[in-house]
């Protein structure tokens, strides 16, 4: 039996936005009956590029249905440009997390969204142009490399959990290991090549942290009725206080470390440590 969060249960039992838009601006269809899960996402985009409506139809398990449902909730009211940067981790986070074997359900949500946006923009997704590595589930090398990079995957098992590749006959295992090694090597080479980030003054650091919280973190937390306030910055220790629904949420620690800290590390400084005010 899977351990699903209350949020997953809620979206599974009473999914939001089930159905199909009649004249959608964009349609994204991913997965298949053979794969065991599939998602058809339709979106309505207005003249300002805002997603005004989204509906889904999903064949799949509880976490596939919940991922689709929460995805439609996230993107409604969002600008397509912003929606295009949505990660599968954000979908999983919005559900209070998914079991790692079910992460591919959040990836399916992200892929359907990308396909729908590409359809709206009239472009062809580059991912589909890769070479199929996993024949059982039709996963391409480009999709695998992307998952390894984005979610920092470190084993073939991780790849299977996130993309399903290798979860069938297992014949592609060697190829997956090879792709993993290449990608990890490439990533560490890029990291080494990157010039050291300029040292920020404390004032600059605080300013940048405030900016990222205002621009990205707060709006996301607000969607779930939560909030966040910056309390203090001492060296690399960033103290924050979670507000609203976040303060009572069981997965607030995960939100803090896997979302807030990750965002700040990406955009301010790699060395930051986020802690909750006691």
């Amino acid at each position: 039996m899977w351990e699903y969060t209350d949020k997953v249960q809620e979206h599974f039992i009473s999914p939001k936005n089930v159905g199909e838009l009649e004249k959608p601006s964009g349609t994204g269809e991913v997965g298949s009956l053979a794969c065991g899960d599939a998602l058809k996402l339709t979106i309505q985009v207005n003249e300002f590029g805002i997603i005004t409506d989204a509906k889904f139809k999903t064949f799949g398990c509880a976490s596939a249905i919940a991922s689709s449902s929460v995805l439609t909730e996230i993107i409604k009211g969002m600008h397509v440009d912003e929606a295009a940067t949505l990660t599968n981790q954000q979908i999983a986070d919005a559900l209070g997390g998914l079991p790692k074997e079910k992460m591919h359900c959040s990836v399916m949500g992200r892929e359907a969204l990308e396909a729908a946006i590409a359809d709206y923009r009239g472009v062809i997704l580059p991912m589909a142009q890769g070479n199929v590595v996993c024949e059982c589930f039709g996963v391409t090398d480009l999709e695998i490399i992307r998952a390894v990079r984005e979610s920092n995957l470190r084993s073939v098992e991780d790849i299977t959990n996130f993309t399903k590749a290798g979860g069938g006959c297992g014949k592609c295992e060697d190829k997956l290991r090879e792709l993993l090694q290449q990608t990890v090597q490439a990533m560490s080479a890029e990291k080494a090549a990157k010039p050291a980030a300029p040292r920020l003054t404390t004032l600059q650091k605080i300013k940048k942290i405030e900016e990222v919280i205002e621009r990205e973190i707060l709006p996301t937390l607000k969607k779930d009725g939560g909030g966040i306030e910056l309390i203090d910055v001492d060296g690399d220790i960033v103290t924050v206080s979670l507000r609203g629904a976040c303060s009572r949420c069981q997965s607030s620690q995960a939100t803090l470390k896997e979302y807030v800290e990750k965002k700040l590390r990406e955009q301010v400084a790699e060395t930051l440590i986020v802690e909750e005010a006691r």
């Binding site: 065991g36 899960d37 064949f59 799949g60 398990c61 596939a64």
Partner: peptide, 23 residues
């Protein structure tokens, strides 16, 4: 329809069974 989703709905009515689905 997918087996795990069926089982979880059955579970809400306290009905226990199994599925051969992948999930």
């Amino acid at each position: 329809v997918e087996g795990e989703a069926i089982l979880l709905h059955m579970n809400r009515h306290n009905i226990c069974a199994s599925s051969g689905s992948a999930c």
